[in-house]
């Protein structure tokens, strides 16, 4: 009996760990993302898939007319600086580095993937057990 309770507690722990990992990795969102894109989409920042290319071009011309070249380039520089600062901050926060500068082996994300993997495994084992139990009852 104590062994069974122990197993149930461990499995509950795995399920909770898996759910946390699932949310942490945005698992569902990333899994179904492929069904929302087409092969030619370029993912430009601020790109609106519903907008036609003509609308896009005309709006860009309008913006070009209102802003001077100097103003635009200043904006671009500012935006680039901000994104670079954000990226650096994010990298430091998560302990990340570029692909080539990596020297330490970090398995933090792998642990979350392991959690999700275990969640699916445990979920399937118990679903299967319930199904077998019901079948036996019938």
């Amino acid at each position: 009996m104590a062994k069974k309770i122990g197993i149930i507690i461990i499995n509950l722990g795995i399920v909770i760990w898996g759910i946390i990992g699932f949310n942490h990795l945005n698992y569902w969102e990333r899994s179904v993302r492929i069904f929302h894109v087409n092969s030619e989409q370029n993912f430009r920042p601020g790109f609106d898939p519903g907008r036609s290319s003509f609308d896009e071009r005309s709006s860009r011309n309008r913006t070009n007319r209102t802003k001077s070249i100097a103003q635009q380039s200043a904006d671009v520089v500012q935006r680039n600086r901000e994104s670079l600062r954000e990226r650096n901050f994010e990298d430091r926060g998560h302990g990340r580095r570029g692909f080539h500068s990596r020297q330490k082996i970090q398995l933090r994300n792998v642990v979350w993937f392991l959690a999700v993997f275990c969640l699916f495994t445990v979920g399937t084992i118990y679903t299967d057990k319930i199904r077998t139990f019901r079948k036996k009852e019938k």
Partner: peptide, 9 residues
């Protein structure tokens, strides 16, 4: 990966 988990289960 999810399918792998189900397969193992």
């Amino acid at each position: 990966l999810a399918l792998f988990g189900i397969h193992l289960g």
